[in-house]
Write a protein that binds this DNA or RNA. Structure first.
Length: 673
DNA sequence: GCATATATAAACAATT
DNA sequence: AAATTGTTTATATATG
């Protein structure tokens, strides 16, 4: 009987989420990208570049502003947010940035503000600087911008629906529709939320309970927006009724944060040791983050306070711990989270853009295609031997981002919040690494690099069940696992599988039975599953030949997790295999591999990072290690290797592409065994 | 439209 | 007897 029914209850939703519905394939236009924007010449690129920088700048400022207004709660958000998408956007080449991509990148409403700013700047530039040259292009750009806005709006809804965006406070969402936000707008928003409106409403909004946002599809976005608006106003009028339970939940929620702050290691905001109690802020005499220029800086509040004493009094009276304050705090946290995420993304993008421009200004295609396509071609040849899957890299890399540096242990979100959380704060350091890496990293590395991510974020891994199972088995010391061990591996490595149990377990069993490559071996104490590499390789040929579309999908998929997970998985999988294959090798072989890249370093570094956080020991170095590289095309390889290293943060040089290649070749043989 | 690949669901059998 | 583990069938989607 259905064993899993029990667990199943939990996940029902999720499955739907990814599995089926999402295919809408948002990515539509992306493939064009490969060649697409080449036409743009440089000027447009430059503009974009500027845009990015400006956006970044603005984001930073905004972020700082917002962050400063946030106190203790902030800390937790920092710590957590698993969700960063490992992804890929990074890999998009600058030149090919399309409205859709923009859309993807700028998810949060707040970003709209940035967008607006960018628009303004851009238009200015167009006029002053490039007007003459651009001429018609100018118009095109303007149109594009408009389009971008529209897309963004839709996208926001989509993300919300998919749960990718942490619940956006309704208010914000609404706001975004009316107009792009800017800091001042945000303030206004706050007023709306905090002002007339009852605290409960705020709460509701903060939790996203009310909205229609979640529902629907992009098509009805506007309709939703419209409907959403209504509630807002009505709320303002003061009618509302929120169950007290929500309130209780809120307090609970907030308290969880404060607790975590003190308890967990990461407390970004306060110095570890002397962290004062939450209330402490009030005590600080001379300055207070919520007080400045004679007025209260509490979001939405601009109460005038003569002095600190008065301010504190005001703070205690008006912003005591109640639903409204809590809700506001929550909203603020989300704002910060979003901005941080965005900042990180934008930074990566900027890096990628700059890198690209510096490296090969004239050759746009390098990135996109590169990947796979090119490589695939070569791969294919070798595929015959072994891996067809060459394609993968690209995607992986794309996905990767890297990033993870998250500091906090995270987790909170997943457990405490129903929706996925995101946010990671990577911000700082990580961003630095350059993108180039991202572009080409192989999948293996993807996994390795994002291992932490997958462990903590409830994001479906872009690999097929078969590839994951294989990976799990090969990773084990004896290259054999019992069903239960396989399950454990899944749950250990992927948060996603911690949550959605029933279906995936069934899927795992199904895959084990269905694919010839998985061989059941009777053992003394039961049965174990092993992998028949030959069979495994056999089945893949038909797969993807590295068509552009695939790549595109991967990219888009990775980026948002939303797209048809399964397909992504399939695509990605190919890459995964690459990873695995190395692992297959005997230790000695492995060692060879290592030479080349130093993945170790990478993996190790990554792991370290992870360890700080919450990761489990898991990733075995060796397996991930090799993966890295893999494949073909010398030129590209180089890039890959670099990228990898970059990710690691550290370093390395990019040495030996050639080695990598060798590895690959070696691998096959080994695998075949 | 067909073939293939994957995901998901579910029925059912075999084991533990 | 219940839970696990395996098999198998069916359906849906995406891609070539």
């Amino acid at each position: 009987m259905m064993v899993e029914s029990a667990s199943e209850t939990i996940r029902t939703t999720p499955s739907n989420q990814n599995g089926v519905s999402s295919q809408s394939d948002v990515g539509g236009g992306r493939e064009g990208g490969s060649n697409g924007d080449t036409n743009g010449e440089i000027s447009p690129v430059d503009l974009l570049h500027l845009q990015q920088q400006q956006a970044l700048q603005a984001a930073r400022q905004f972020l700082l502003q917002q962050a400063s207004g946030l106190n203790s709660p902030g800390s937790n958000e920092v710590k957590q947010s698993p969700v960063q998408v490992p992804v890929s956007m990074a890999m998009m080449s600058p030149q090919m940035i399309t409205p859709q991509q923009m859309q993807q990148i700028l998810s949060p409403p707040q970003l709209q503000a940035l967008l607006q700013q960018q628009q303004a700047l851009m238009l200015q530039q167009v006029r002053h600087t490039h007007a003459r040259q651009l001429g018609s292009k100018q118009l095109a750009f303007q149109q594009q911008l408009i389009q971008m806005q529209q897309l963004q709006q839709q996208h926001i809804l989509n993300l919300q629906r998919q749960g990718l965006v942490p619940l956006q406070p309704t208010a914000l969402t609404l706001h975004s529709f009316s107009a792009a936000m800017c800091p001042s707008d945000l303030q206004q928003l706050w007023k709306e939320v905090s002002g007339v409106q009852s605290s409960e409403d705020a709460l509701k909004q903060a939790e996203g309970l009310d909205l229609s946002t979640n529902s629907s599809n992009s098509t009805s976005a506007f309709a939703k927006a419209a409907s959403a608006h209504i509630p807002l106003h009505s709320l303002v009028n003061g009618q509302s009724h929120t169950p007290k339970r929500d309130r209780a939940r809120l307090f609970e929620w907030i308290s969880s944060f404060t607790k975590s702050d003190s308890g967990d290691d990461h407390v970004p905001f306060y110095p570890k040791g002397g962290q004062p109690p939450s209330s402490h802020h009030e005590e600080h005499a001379s300055s207070h983050p919520l007080y400045g220029h004679g007025e209260c800086k509490w979001p939405g509040c601009e109460a005038l306070c003569e002095d600190m004493g008065q301010f504190i009094k005001h703070l205690n009276n008006e912003h005591a711990l109640d639903d409204r304050s809590t809700a506001q705090c929550r909203v603020q946290m989300q704002v910060v989270q979003q901005l941080e995420i965005q900042l990180a993304k934008e930074s990566e993008r900027l890096q990628a853009m700059m890198t690209h421009l510096h490296m090969r200004p004239s050759e746009p295609k390098a990135f996109n295609q590169p990947l796979n396509l090119a490589s695939s071609g070569s791969l294919l040849k070798r595929d015959s031997d072994m891996y067809p899957e060459g394609l993968p890299h690209p995607p992986t890399s794309a996905a990767t981002p890297i990033t993870p540096l998250r500091q906090g242990p995270s987790v909170i979100s997943s457990s405490s919040l129903h929706s996925h959380s995101h946010s990671h704060t990577h911000g700082i350091g990580p961003i630095r690494r350059r993108n180039s890496d991202k572009y080409c990293t192989p999948i293996a590395s993807e996994l390795a690099q994002n291992c932490e991510f997958y462990k903590n974020a409830d994001v479906r891994p872009p690999f097929t069940y078969a590839s994951l199972i294989r990976h799990a088995i090969l990773e084990s010391p004896d290259r054999q696992l019992t069903l239960n061990e396989i399950y454990n591996w899944f749950t250990r490595k992927f948060a996603y599988f911690r949550r959605n149990t029933a279906t995936w377990k069934n899927a795992v069993r199904h895959n084990l039975s269905l694919h010839k490559c998985f061989v059941r071996v009777e053992n003394v104490k039961g049965a174990v599953w092993t992998v028949d590499e030959v069979e495994y390789q056999k089945r893949r040929p038909p797969k993807m030949t590295g068509s552009p579309t695939l790549v595109k999908n991967m990219i888009s998929g990775l980026g948002f997790g939303s797209l048809n997970a399964s397909y992504q998985a399939a695509l990605a999988e190919s890459s995964l295999s690459l990873l695995n294959s190395p692992s297959l090798m005997t230790p000695s072989a492995a060692s060879l591999n290592m030479l080349h890249v130093g993945h170790d370093d990478v993996s190790s570094t990554v792991e370290q990072v992870n360890s700080n956080g919450s990761c489990s020991p898991t990733l075995s170095p060796h397996q991930y290690s090799h993966q890295v590289h893999v494949k073909e095309e010398p030129t590209e390889l180089e890039d890959d290797s670099r990228s990898v290293s970059l990710l690691a943060g550290v370093t390395r040089n990019l040495p030996l592409p050639s080695d990598e290649r060798d590895l690959e070749e070696d691998l096959p043989t080994e695998e075949l065994e």
